[in-house]
């Protein structure tokens, strides 16, 4: 059984974002990065599925600049078997269809039984790369997957999708299939020292793709700080205690809940 996990490098959650000179993306030059959160859960679930099955191969794949290799190395240290790095220097310039097409070209020949991705990226948040990829590969997909019935794995797999407002639904999918994984599906493991040492011997294959032009792209014209919809009264001038005192006053006189 072969599982490919797609993972993306994104800006660190706590990074201060500065808008780039062309105002079409952030300035990524000296920003810290991390693995996209839900992609980490996708990897964890792939590893658990392989362990439950007792055999198989987990291949981790990223599309990104040279710096994205750390995403692959980290995944290999956690237990993935090998990596594929689709090297694209400015991935933010690609639209989701282009990304899906480029990945389809790079991994199609692997003929994986399962492809896992996170449900969306924390930067561009297109939330569709996986679904388009499944369509291009001619395989079915399920999004926002929150549980797998690991014992059901065979020609098909039973999985649980999250619906809205606390509703859920089980589906049984014929394999091969692509699943987009929701954060929180299971607790993510840390890389062990042994894992980190073992990762050094694992293969990472570099792919330099020819990215095709795509006429129907959504084009980012401008990025900017969200327009404020409310007049926010900032309290305390950076002094936490003073802010608390002022807030209590507001809760008494303006909000009137005290």
């Amino acid at each position: 059984m072969k599982i490919i996990v797609l993972m993306k490098q994104v800006a660190n959650k706590d990074a201060i974002l500065r808008i780039g000179k062309d105002e079409k993306w952030i300035d990524e030059s000296d920003i810290s990065h991390q693995t996209n959160e839900s992609d980490g859960y996708a990897l964890e679930e792939a590893l658990r599925l392989k362990e439950a099955k007792g055999e198989g191969e987990v291949i981790v794949c990223t599309l990104g600049a040279a710096s994205a290799k750390t995403v692959l190395k980290d995944a290999l240290a956690r237990g993935a078997d090998r990596g594929i790095h689709i090297i694209v220097n400015e991935p933010n310039k690609l639209s989701p269809f282009q990304i899906a097409k480029t990945i389809a070209d790079a991994i199609g020949e692997e003929s994986a039984d399962l492809i896992f991705t996170g449900l969306q990226s924390d930067d561009a948040s297109y939330g569709q790369t996986g679904v388009i990829l499944a369509e291009l590969l001619g395989i079915p997909h399920a999004t926002i997957v929150i549980d797998l019935d690991r014992s059901s794995l065979g020609e098909s797999l039973r999985l649980k999708r999250e619906l809205e407002s606390g509703w859920y639904q089980w589906f049984t999918y014929k394999l091969p299939a692509l699943l987009t994984i929701q954060s929180g599906i299971s607790q993510i493991r840390y890389a062990s020292l042994k894992g980190i040492m073992a990762a050094k011997k694992k293969e990472i294959r570099d792919v330099t793709p020819g990215v095709e032009d795509y006429a129907s792209a959504q084009k980012i014209e401008k990025v900017y700080l969200p327009l404020k919809t409310k007049q926010t009264q900032m309290l305390g001038d950076g002094d936490a205690k003073k802010g608390a005192l002022e807030l209590v006053e507001k809760l008494k006189t303006e909000v009137r809940v005290l």
């Binding site: 006429a215 792209a217 084009k219 980012i220 014209e221 900017y224 700080l225």
Partner: peptide
């Protein structure tokens, strides 16, 4: 954290 204005080509 940010908004993006987007047009559709094609």
């Amino acid at each position: 954290k940010l908004d993006a204005d987007v047009t559709i080509e094609g």
